[in-house]
């Protein structure tokens, strides 16, 4: 800046005053800008262009808004499942209090349940985690229970292995 004094700057501005851009320069300015931008882009590898496009597309949306939709849908589904399970597992009102039944009333149609070879005796020997059973110790019972006395052991020894 030191090599230019005010007079020289004045002269230079005076000369520039007569310079004009070619016709249509301002009209085509935006078009030319985009063309040069595309040329610049096309010099990049294809994969980088794809990545860039994808990133631009993703950021064109509000991500925080988008993530809330799946969360809301999941919450609704979980609530629906819990409500339906509770409805399904709600015990039927007890019509007979076992404690107060003075006389055994057994309809003839229930006889198969009373066979000694009950399902308990022939079930698959699955083991399940031991649980705390106090949480739902409801005392009301409905219907005739299965009176337990097995007809075969719940397990056998297969051979004389020890």
């Amino acid at each position: 800046m030191d090599e230019f004094n005010d007079n020289e700057i004045t002269k230079l501005l005076r000369l520039k005053r007569y310079e004009q851009p070619p016709p249509g320069y301002f009209e085509n300015f935006l078009h030319e800008f985009h063309r040069r931008q595309r040329d610049e882009l096309l010099r990049e590898p294809l994969w980088r262009i794809c990545v860039g496009r994808a990133r631009d597309f993703a950021f064109s949306f509000n991500l925080s808004t988008l993530t809330s939709y799946p969360a809301a849908v999941t919450a609704v589904l979980v609530c629906a499942a819990v409500i339906s399970l509770r409805i399904y597992q709600t015990p039927q009102p007890a019509t007979v209090a076992a404690k107060d039944r003075p006389v055994l009333v057994v309809p003839a149609s229930t006889e198969p349940e009373w066979t000694l070879a009950s399902p308990v005796a022939t079930r698959v020997f699955n083991t399940r985690p031991l649980g705390n059973m106090t949480k739902s110790a409801r005392t009301h019972r409905s219907g005739t229970p299965r009176y337990v006395l097995d007809s075969v052991p719940v397990s056998y020894e297969t051979t004389f292995k020890f």
Partner: peptide, 20 residues
């Protein structure tokens, strides 16, 4: 062994039982 909702009737009352 494989039951839930276990209750024990003792002295005319029913008590919840847990499996050991």
């Amino acid at each position: 062994g494989e039951a839930d909702n276990v209750t024990v009737e003792f002295k005319g009352r029913k008590y919840p039982a847990r499996q050991l």
